[in-house]
Amino acid sequence: MATKLYPWQENLWQQWQQLIQADRLPHAILCAMPVGAGREALVQYFADTLLCLTPRY
């Protein structure tokens, strides 16, 4: 699991966590970011969170 998000990803991360908690997560999310913005780390962190048996959100 990624250890930490970049500061500019925190707002998006909070939105995704709210969707999970409200059981309103869509079936797909398009994650388009500029090269070098940390997209791969963010997506991996999100996938790890969704697949974790003991989530920490």
Results as ranks from 00 to 15, higher is better:
L5R: 01
A47G: 02
L30A: 06
Q18N: 10
L5G: 01
H27P: 04
M1F: 06
L42W: 05
D48R: 05
W16T: 10
Y57M: 05
C31I: 09
W16N: 11
P26Y: 05
A37D: 00
W13S: 01
V43H: 06
T3R: 13
D48P: 02
Y45L: 11
E10Y: 04
G36C: 11
T49C: 13
A2M: 06
V43Y: 05
Q17A: 00
Q9S: 06
L51K: 10
M1Q: 10
P7S: 12
P26G: 08
K4Q: 13
W8Q: 14
L51G: 10
D23K: 13
Y45I: 02
F46E: 06
G36T: 04
L51F: 11
Q17R: 02
L53R: 13
Q18V: 07
R56F: 03
Q15P: 02
Q44F: 02
P7Q: 12
V43S: 06
L12G: 05
M33L: 15
F46T: 07
P34F: 09
C31S: 11
T3K: 14
A2R: 05
A47S: 01
P34R: 14
R24W: 07
L51H: 12
G36W: 07
W16I: 14
G36N: 08
H27N: 10
T3N: 14
Q15S: 12
C52Q: 11
L50P: 01
Y6N: 15
V43N: 05
W13R: 02
C31T: 08
A37T: 03
T3S: 15
Q15W: 13
V35E: 13
G38C: 02
Y6K: 15
L50Q: 04
Y45Q: 10
V35K: 12
E10T: 12
L42N: 00
Q21A: 15
A47F: 03
W16S: 14
L5C: 02
A22S: 08
Q44H: 00
